[in-house]
Each structure stands twice: as structure tokens, then as C-alpha cells.
Computed example of a mutant assay.
Amino acid sequence: MSDDPFGDLDAAMGDSGPSTSDSEAESTQELTAETDELPETGQEVSERSPLEDPAFEFDETVHKALYVLEAVAAEFDDIITYDVERELTRDHGLRNIKKSELHNAALAVVAEHPDLIVDRVLDQRGIDDE
């Protein structure tokens, strides 16, 4: 008997391993390469549509914990969902908007304005820096 108590779980559930073969994985990698051609067929891959496709894939992201007050988190979520996402959809015709894309944009805007972060921290502490 194996030391792994879950060692035979895959077999019992009918899972014989990874769902893609090595050749399928290679084909997928070839498809995502910069050649813009389907492997073996020479057909071009359809272009990415900026209105339909996110700016980047989810697997390119990292998960980071942010520690915020509950009220600020709720306000942020509301603004992202009800203001930003709605405007992107209604006024700009974007589809398939991912939260990771919205969060990335929000943090990029914040990163461009460190002076506003300094001002807010001083304000939160009740320090008048003027």
C-alpha cells in the first residue's frame, strides 16, 4: 500500500492523468506563438479584437492581497462594476471585460499618481501638509 492516502483517487474517479497529450500541448503552444498561423495547416489565426478580447490573459496576472477598510473596498467594487465597466460596455462597445483587467488599470492609474497617495495618507492621519 502506498503512503499517499489519495494515490488511487484518480483511478477511482476515472481520471487517467492530464487531459491533453504532449502533442496537443505543443500545438497549443504553437498556436499562441508569434507566427499567427495554425500549426500544420498554414492558416492564419484570427486577429485579436480589442472590443471583444481582454488586454491580457488571466494567467499573466499575479494575486496580491490588498488591505483596505471594508467601506473603501465596497466603494471601489461599486465604482468598478457600476461606473467603469458600464461605461466601457455602453459608451465604448467593449465586451468580455475581466475584473483582472479593471483592477490592473486601477492600480496603474494609482501608480502614476504617488503624490495623491501621500496626500490621502496624510489626510487619513489628520495631518495638514499645506
Rank of each mutant, 00 (worst) to 15 (best):
A111I: 01
H92D: 07
A25R: 14
E40P: 00
L9P: 00
V110Y: 07
L107I: 14
E34Y: 07
E57Y: 10
G93M: 02
T61Q: 05
H63C: 03
T89L: 04
P39L: 02
P18H: 10
D128A: 10
L51P: 00
L116A: 10
I97N: 01
S21V: 02
I117F: 15
N96A: 07
E44Y: 08
R120L: 10
D22Q: 14
V121Q: 03
A71F: 11
E130H: 06
G14M: 02
E26M: 11
A71V: 10
L102V: 03
H63V: 13
Q43Y: 11
S100Y: 11
R95L: 08
D3G: 08
L51N: 10
R125C: 04
A55K: 05
I80R: 04
A25F: 10
S46I: 07
S46E: 13
F76E: 02
R86M: 11
V62K: 13
E52L: 15
E57R: 06
D128Y: 01
I79M: 07
S49H: 11
M13Y: 08
A25P: 00
A33F: 07
S21Q: 06
T28C: 01
D8T: 13
V68A: 14
D22G: 11
R48P: 00
L51I: 06
E40W: 09
T32R: 10
E40G: 03
T35S: 15
F6T: 03
A71E: 15
L38A: 11
S16E: 14
G42C: 04
V45S: 04
I79T: 06
A73G: 11
D15Y: 14
E37K: 12
I117L: 15
H103W: 04
A11S: 07
L66S: 06
E34T: 05
E34C: 06
D77P: 01
D129Y: 08
E60I: 01
E37W: 03
A108I: 10
A73C: 04
H103D: 12
